[in-house]
C-alpha cells in the first residue's frame, strides 16, 4: 500500500527525472556534463550563505526558496569562474572545472561548520544538500518539481532545432544566422535550473547523474535525436519512480542514491544490449 507521503515523493522524483532527462539529452551532446557537476558543487556556498543570511535576518533559515536562490547564484558564479579561467588561456577547461568545483565546495564545507557552531539549529537540514533527502519532500515541493518538468520539456521542445544545430555543428549554425551565444546561454540556464532544483532531493554529489545517465542510456538505444530525446526524458521519469519506490520499501535507503542506481541499472543493461 502506497502512503500519501510516498506518492508525493514518487511523483516529485518522476517530475525531476523527466526535467533532467530532457535537458540532459542536450547537455550530454554539447559536452556539458562536467560543467553541470561543477555547478552543482559550486551551489553549496550559496546555500550556506543564504542560511546564514536568513538566521541573521531572523527568517526561517530552513525555508527552501531562499536557499535554492542562493545556490543558483553561487552555481552561476561558479560557471562564470570556469569560463573566465578558461578564457585566460593559462589553463584548460577541464582543469578550470576541477579548480572551481573543489574550491567552491571547500568554501561551502567551511561555511557549514560555521553554521553548525551557531545556536537555533540553523544548520538543520543543510547537510542534506550534499547527499540529498527526497523523503522529506512535501506536496508543494512535488508540485514545484512538476512545474519544473513542464517548463524544461516546453523549452527544450521549443528550442529543439536550435539546440540540435548548436550541438552538432555550432559554426555552421552560426553561419546560418543562429545566435550561438544566446542559445548556449539558454542551455546552460536550463542545466543550472535542473542542478539547483535537484539539490534538496538528490544532493550536489549525485545531481549530475540525473542529467547524464538517462541521456547516455537513451543515446545507446537510439540513432536519431528525436528518439533519443523522448527516451531520455522517459528514462529519467521511470528512474525517478522506481528509485523512490525502492527507497520507500527499504527504510534507510536515500532516495537520490536509489534513483541514481536505477538509472545506472538501465545504463548497464543498454550497454549489454548494444554489445550483444
Amino acid at each position: 500500500m502506497i502512503t500519501h507521503n510516498t506518492l508525493v515523493v514518487v511523483l516529485g522524483c518522476a517530475a525531476l527525472g523527466v526535467a533532467a532527462g530532457a535537458v540532459g539529452c542536450f547537455a550530454l551532446l554539447r559536452g556539458r556534463a562536467l560543467l553541470a557537476d561543477a555547478m552543482g558543487h559550486a551551489a553549496l556556498p550559496g546555500v550556506v550563505a543564504a542560511a546564514l543570511l536568513g538566521a541573521w535576518w531572523g527568517t526561517d533559515p530552513r525555508a527552501l526558496p531562499p536557499l535554492l536562490i542562493g545556490g543558483a547564484i553561487a552555481g552561476a558564479l561558479g560557471l562564470w569562474a570556469v569560463q573566465a579561467l578558461s578564457a585566460t588561456g593559462r589553463i584548460r577547461q577541464d582543469a578550470a572545472i576541477a579548480v572551481v568545483l573543489a574550491s567552491f565546495y571547500a568554501l561551502g564545507v567551511v561555511g557549514l561548520s560555521v553554521v553548525q557552531a551557531m545556536p537555533a539549529g540553523a544548520q538543520a537540514g543543510l547537510s542534506h544538500f550534499i547527499l540529498g533527502q527526497a523523503a522529506t519532500m512535501r506536496a508543494e515541493d512535488a508540485w514545484a518539481a512538476g512545474l519544473l518538468a513542464l517548463f524544461c520539456l516546453a523549452s527544450t521542445v521549443a528550442l529543439f532545432p536550435r539546440l540540435r544545430a548548436l550541438c552538432f555543428d555550432a559554426e555552421f549554425a552560426a553561419l546560418q544566422g543562429l545566435n550561438i551565444r544566446r542559445t548556449d546561454a539558454a542551455l546552460m540556464g536550463l542545466i543550472l535550473l535542473v542542478c539547483i532544483a535537484g539539490l534538496p532531493a538528490v544532493g550536489l554529489v549525485l545531481v549530475v547523474a540525473l542529467l547524464v545517465l538517462p541521456a547516455a542510456t537513451a543515446r545507446m538505444l537510439n540513432q536519431r535525436l528525436p528518439g533519443m530525446f523522448m527516451a531520455s526524458a522517459a528514462l529519467g521519469g521511470i528512474s525517478g519512480v522506481l528509485g523512490a519506490l525502492l527507497s520507500a520499501g527499504h527504510a534507510g535507503w536515500p532516495t537520490g542514491a536509489a534513483v541514481v542506481l536505477v538509472g545506472t541499472a538501465f545504463f548497464v543493461a543498454s550497454l549489454m544490449l548494444r554489445r550483444a
Binding site: A165, F168, F172, A173, L178, R219, R224, L225, M228
Partner: peptide, 18 residues
C-alpha cells in the same frame, strides 16, 4: 563535428534547411 551525433545522413543534410 561530432560524428557520433545521433543523426542520419538525411538529418545532417536537412540541417542546411533549418
Amino acid at each position: 563535428v561530432d560524428w557520433d551525433f545521433p543523426a542520419s545522413a538525411l538529418d545532417v543534410v536537412a540541417m542546411a534547411r533549418t
